[in-house]
C-alpha cells in the first residue's frame, strides 16, 4: 500500500496502534481508577439525578458525562467498570488460555489415547449451550467475580484446545520435528523448543479474542444480575440500568455501550494486528 508520501507501508500499523492506544488508555484508567475518577462510584445524589452530559443544556460541569437516575456519576462508574472488565479479561483470558493450550498441546503432540480422550471431552463439552452452561454454573457457584472467571474458563477452554491441538499437529508433521526425533532429543524438549514457539502466535491471537469475549460475558452476566452486587459499577450493570430510562436519559445507556463495544473490538483487532506483525511465517 502506498500512503501520501509515496513510501511502501504495510497496512497493519493503524489497526495495531488504534486498538493498542484504546486498550492502553482503558488499562491505565482501570489501574488508577480511585485516583482519576472525579466522584465516588457508589455515591448517590437524588437531587442531581439524570443530569445530561456536558454539551447538553442543563448539565452540571462536575458531572462530565452526566448522572444516572440515582445521581451517580456516569464517568466515574465507567472508569471503575473498566477495572472489573479488565480484571476479568486478564485473569479469565490467561487462565482459559493456559488450560486450553496445555490440553491442546498434549493432544496434538502425543496423539494416541491422550488425543482421543481430550478430543472426545472437547466434543462433549461443546455440545452444551454456553450461555445456559454459564448461568447454571453461576447458580451452583453463587454470584461474584470469582464465579464469573471460573465460568468463563470452564466454558471456553475448548476454543483454545481445538485450535492449539490442530496447530500442534501441523507442527509435529514438520521436517524440523522429524530431525529432532532423529537426533534423539527428548519429547519434552521437542514440545517445548520446537513446537511451542510456533504455536505461541496462535495462542496470543486467541488470547486477545478471549479477553474480548470475557468482557462480553461479564457484561452479559451483569446485565442479567448474575455478576457482583447490583450496586457495583459494571458496564453490563450500567447498560441494564440505562435500558430502563432510555427515553429520559439516553446517556446512561449509550456511554457504557460504546465503551464496551470499542473495548471488545480493540481486543480482537489488537490480536489480528499482533499476528500480522509477529507471525514468523507471514513476516
Amino acid at each position: 500500500m502506498l500512503d501520501g508520501r509515496g513510501t511502501v507501508r504495510r497496512p497493519l500499523g493503524a489497526r495495531l496502534w488504534l486498538s493498542g492506544c484504546w486498550l492502553g488508555i482503558m488499562a491505565l484508567l482501570a489501574l488508577f481508577a480511585p485516583l482519576i475518577s472525579p466522584h465516588d462510584p457508589l455515591a448517590q445524589d437524588l437531587f442531581a439525578g439524570r443530569l445530561p452530559p456536558f454539551w447538553v443544556r442543563g448539565s452540571d460541569p462536575a458531572f462530565l458525562l452526566g448522572t444516572d437516575s440515582l445521581g451517580r456519576d456516569v464517568l466515574t462508574r465507567l472508569i471503575h467498570g473498566a477495572r472489573i472488565a479488565f480484571a476479568v479479561a486478564l485473569i479469565a483470558g490467561l487462565a482459559t488460555a493456559f488450560v486450553g493450550s496445555v490440553l491442546g498441546l498434549l493432544a496434538g503432540y502425543m496423539r494416541g489415547w491422550v488425543d482421543v480422550l481430550i478430543s472426545r471431552l472437547v466434543e462433549i463439552w461443546m455440545a452444551f449451550p454456553p450461555v445456559l452452561f454459564a448461568i447454571l454454573l453461576i447458580a451452583v457457584l453463587g454470584t461474584g467475580l470469582t464465579s464469573i472467571i471460573i465460568a468463563i474458563v470452564v466454558i471456553d477452554w475448548t476454543r483454545f484446545c481445538r485450535v492449539v491441538r490442530a496447530e500442534a499437529m501441523n507442527q509435529s508433521a514438520m521436517d524440523y520435528v522429524s530431525s529432532a526425533i532423529v537426533a534423539g532429543r527428548p519429547r519434552r524438549d521437542i514440545l517445548w523448543r520446537e513446537i511451542l514457539p510456533n504455536v505461541l502466535p496462535t495462542i496470543v491471537v486467541l488470547l486477545t479474542l478471549e479477553m474480548g469475549i470475557a468482557v462480553i460475558v461479564e457484561a452479559i452476566l451483569s446485565f442479567v444480575n448474575l455478576s457482583i452486587s447490583t450496586d457495583a459499577p459494571t458496564w453490563g450493570g450500567m447498560i441494564a440500568e440505562g435500558r430502563t430510562s432510555i427515553h429520559q436519559a439516553w446517556w446512561v445507556l449509550a456511554f457504557p455501550l460504546g465503551v464496551l463495544f470499542l473495548t471488545v473490538l480493540s481486543f480482537s483487532q489488537f490480536g489480528e494486528g499482533l499476528k500480522d506483525r509477529f507471525d514468523p511465517v507471514l513476516r
Partner: peptide
Amino acid sequence: LIPQDPLTALNPS
C-alpha cells in the same frame, strides 16, 4: 537426516 524441503526443515522461530 538431510530432509527434502529446506523451507520447512528449519524451525522458523
